[in-house]
């Protein structure tokens, strides 16, 4: 067990087909197509839809994130990787409604070292930030942000980031930093959250995803380890329900047997 490999992880997790493709004795440099060829079953399809952002807000977010992480040879853009849906879901959920934010008053602006002091949860930061940025764009160019040329879009984004554009009811930089932070999150987070579609972000940089057990390969120095990335949903859904169940139970049984079950009753 101390030599548990990624191969074993996949086996334990039930992706038996992939396990044969990257089995022990496979060459150190695993070509992506080796794993691609394995008979991993198709994931259950989940429809994507916006639940928090209004239509003008959707247009703004999609246009903005298409500039923040644009398409290139390595991957699609953040927009094409579904990051607008990621942002929408985050806004609709716990984070967007102020989870883990201390929300008691009194409120006053502090120093940069004291951090975020707005009486506002992320939903409001986006709603007000988008509306006022669009108002600025209409005043300057006669169009909303999504209808601008990419050159003008970049100019606006730089203006928000660098403090050249001031918004009346929200600090422009706080809005921009949150948007950029969320875009990077969505591009690299597990695809189950709506972004990083087809693991576009992970493939671009060579991140293998959640199937991670490297005892046998970590000392193969300076040899790139590149495999088809695996997400949480692949493990949970990528196989027949029954064998899946059995494999997971088997995994738990083996781990519990080896190390003693620490779960306490009551």
């Amino acid at each position: 067990m101390d030599e548990l490999s990624r191969n074993d992880f996949l086996k334990l997790a039930g992706i038996a087909g992939t396990a044969t493709a990257v089995g022990e004795g496979a060459p150190a440099l695993l070509r992506p197509d080796a794993a691609d060829a394995a008979p991993v079953k198709a994931l259950l399809l989940q429809p994507q839809a916006f639940t928090y952002l209004t239509q003008p807000e959707q247009a703004f977010v999609e246009a903005a994130i298409d500039r923040l992480i644009p398409k290139d040879a390595s991957s699609p853009s953040a927009k094409d990787a579904g990051v607008a849906y990621y942002i929408d879901q985050q806004l609709a959920g716990a984070w967007g409604t102020g989870a883990r934010q201390y929300r008691q008053g009194p409120w006053q602006q502090g120093t940069p070292e004291q951090g975020y002091q707005l009486n506002m949860v992320p939903q409001q930061l986006y709603r007000i930030g988008i509306a006022q940025t669009n108002a600025h764009c209409r005043k300057t160019y006669g169009k909303t942000f999504d209808a601008l040329s990419s050159v003008h879009q970049d100019e606006i984004l730089h203006g928000l980031e660098g403090g050249k554009i001031a918004l009346a009811e929200v600090p422009a930089k706080a809005f921009f930093d949150t948007l950029l932070g969320n875009t990077v999150e969505g591009f690299f987070a597990d695809p189950l959250y709506g972004g990083n579609r087809n693991k576009a972000g992970w493939k671009a940089i060579g991140f293998p995803g959640v199937a991670a057990a490297y005892t046998g390969v970590i000392e193969r120095h300076n040899i790139p380890y590149r495999v088809k990335p695996v997400g949480i949903a692949d493990v949970e859904q990528g196989m027949d329900p029954d064998p899946d169940r059995a494999e997971n139970d088997e995994h738990r049984r083996r781990v519990a047997m080896m190390h003693g079950n620490t779960r306490r009753e009551g």
């Binding site: 997790a13 883990r100 987070a189 738990r252 779960r263």
Partner: peptide
């Protein structure tokens, strides 16, 4: 406890644990 709270694959979720601080003190 390890079983079931730290089980794979869910525990390898960077967003939930590293970014949204699932195991940390809740500032709210």
């Amino acid at each position: 406890n390890t079983d079931p709270d730290f089980e794979i694959p869910q525990i390898h979720d960077e967003l939930a644990y590293a970014v949204r601080h699932k195991f940390m003190q809740d500032a709210a």
